[in-house]
């Protein structure tokens, strides 16, 4: 087999591997690698998505509106300050002061 033939074979093999990987990537399993993440992935809609910024870990976590009540339990306080709401950070899990804003 010539060198050129070997290279073509390599390329074919890489193409086959990637195609196979893309096929398997179309079957997301919530108990598979998604389980590595504790935060939810909130796809941005056409008008953006709600995000919470944590005063403790300084991270910004996207959240769904329906997740808010759970984060506010058992008690949430809102004060007129930068990090205005006391609730649970979806990123670090601490109960601390957060800032909500709309992310486009």
């Amino acid at each position: 087999m010539s060198n050129k033939d070997t290279s073509d074979w390599d390329r074919d093999m890489i193409d086959r591997q990637l195609a196979e990987h893309l096929r398997s990537a179309r079957r997301p399993d919530p108990l598979g690698k998604r389980a590595l993440f504790s935060v939810s992935g909130v796809p941005s809609g056409p008008f953006g998505s709600l995000a919470l910024e944590c005063s403790s870990c300084k991270r910004e976590s996207p959240v769904r509106l329906r997740e808010l009540p759970r984060l506010m339990m058992p008690l949430s306080i809102t004060l007129p300050r930068k990090y205005h709401s006391l609730m649970k950070c979806p990123g670090c899990g601490r109960r601390t002061w957060l800032r909500a804003h709309w992310r486009v």
Partner: peptide
């Protein structure tokens, strides 16, 4: 793996 916020 059992902790919330494990990524951080």
């Amino acid at each position: 793996l059992t902790r919330t916020g494990r990524e951080y």
